[in-house]
Design a protein around this nucleic acid. Structure first.
Length: 437
DNA sequence: TCTGGGGTCCTAGGACCC
DNA sequence: TCTGGGGTCCTAGGACCC
């Protein structure tokens, strides 16, 4: 193994990690005061728990639990459908509040953020821990939700801090006290260490985060790859992960998958699912003005093993019509008759900005322009009347078994301002159109 | 978490070239 | 033709995260 030097950022740094408590459920409680103090569960539309308020957690409700089971453990639970648009709004507001304290805010996920506080003690005339307390208080006051906060020398330590005490915790881990927090933390609880690596470390006789951090650097380098060497540094108070301020504007890949229960052996049905995956992935790619150079197709068997194939595209594209031949060919190679599949998936990879796509002598310009026009219209129709107002014929066989799409949207809008596509179309009594290309 | 959906990054190994 | 060394690019697959 070649060992490359790791970049240690100038330190000590002061990194804050903020993690909203039971975020979706908390948003619901903030908007509906009558729900405060009650066991609230979101995810009604999917039939499984997306988020559970602490009142619900106290009664044994867990993420991913089926709503049937919820009824058993907690009959008085209040079930609501997930309302991502509202949660996104809360999220945006939360990040705005953080930026009042520091410009260096990383929007890590809808309910988590890192903030680089390094050097701000003078400005606020107080310790980093007190800045953390102010941030926590500001979010809780302005948004009506509680958050847990960790402050330490690195992202990994800050994350351990925010997790140390929840909900509404504030944990500061100064360098001199790192060992006190790590000795009680088992190695698989460290951010970035999963079950596999944890098992491996256990075999080396490393069970706690402290044992990991105290392991000699040479041993770490001998047995572990770069990501784990970095975690090792971070645990020892040396910051290697920067707080990334730029909001992620582009994608490396876009994927769409669909699980169907029970698993199916119906070739037409399975292909139609895949076809719909492809359409959905392309819709998203076009929304971000991206074109794919590689297409990955995969099927998941009953035993959760995936088989798939990666195809190189001769022209970067975001148009399903240009991809169906590849999709069919890939499917033909991967699909085995008689085997039940439980999931189909499509990944658009090697994405590049649409306007940078080069044309070759062999491209049929007339056809490409026509395609662009057609999809431009399709996207407009979808924007007006809802997703899948126009659909490719090969996606049709999903309709025998289809159900709603998860309510999800990248565009934050005011509550009640618009209904999600499928609903809206039904509400307006619009017909479904099918496109044959 | 007997398993939903959407992502990222890293590494080993093969192909190919000089 | 064979041999060896070294670099680059790509792909498959692993591992992890929210």
């Amino acid at each position: 193994m070649t060992t490359q030097p790791l970049t240690i950022r100038s330190w000590p740094r002061a990194i804050l990690h903020l993690d909203a408590d039971a975020f979706f459920a908390s948003c619901e409680q903030a908007i509906h005061p009558e729900l405060r103090g009650q066991p609230v569960i979101t995810g009604k539309e999917r039939g499984i728990v997306a988020a559970a308020s602490y009142e619900a957690k106290a009664r044994g409700v867990k993420r991913g639990m089926s709503l049937m089971d919820v009824k058993k453990v907690c009959p008085e639970a209040v079930l609501v459908p997930s309302d991502y648009e509202t949660y996104s709004l809360f999220s945006v507001r939360m990040f705005e509040i953080l930026r009042r304290f520091s410009p260096d805010v990383e929007e890590y996920s809808i309910d988590e953020a890192f903030v680089d506080l390094t050097g701000l003690r003078r400005k606020f005339h107080c310790s980093y821990g007190e800045i953390g307390a102010q941030i926590q208080a500001a979010v809780e006051r302005d948004l009506g939700i509680t958050v847990s906060v960790g402050v330490s020398l690195s992202k990994v330590l800050a994350k351990a801090g925010s997790k140390y005490h929840k909900p509404h915790g504030l944990t500061v881990i100064p360098g001199r006290d790192i060992h006190r927090y790590l000795e009680k933390l088992s190695v698989e609880k460290i951010w970035g260490i999963g079950p596999n690596t944890a098992a491996f470390l256990n075999k080396l006789g490393i069970g706690t985060a402290l044992e990991f951090a105290r392991t000699h650097e040479d041993v770490i380098k001998k047995h572990l790859s770069k990501p784990y060497q970095e975690i090792w540094c971070e645990l020892n108070g040396m910051s290697v992960y920067p707080v990334v301020t730029e909001s992620k504007s582009t994608y490396q890949s876009i994927s769409k998958t669909k699980t169907f229960t029970p698993p199916s052996t119906d070739e037409a049905f399975v292909f139609a699912q895949l076809s719909k995956n492809l359409e959905n992935a392309c819709i998203k790619a076009r929304r971000h003005n991206l074109a794919a150079t590689r297409l990955i197709i995969f099927l998941r068997k009953k035993d959760f093993r995936d088989i798939g194939i990666e195809l190189r595209l001769n022209r970067p594209t975001g148009y399903p019509a240009e991809l169906f031949d590849a999709l069919r060919e890939g499917f033909r190679q991967v699909y085995q008759a008689g085997i039940p599949y439980r999931l189909t998936g499509v990944v658009l990879a090697g994405l590049m900005p649409e306007n940078r796509v080069q044309f070759t002598l062999f491209d049929d310009m007339a056809r490409i322009e026509k395609m662009a026009k057609i999809y431009h219209s399709v996207d407009e129709l979808s924007a007006r009347f809802g997703k899948h107002t126009v659909q490719h014929a090969s996606s049709l066989p999903t309709k025998v078994q289809t159900q709603h799409e998860g309510a999800r949207g990248d565009v934050p809008v005011r509550r009640g301002e618009l209904l999600k596509g499928e609903n809206r179309r039904q509400r307006l009594g619009l017909p479904m159109l099918h496109m044959k290309v």
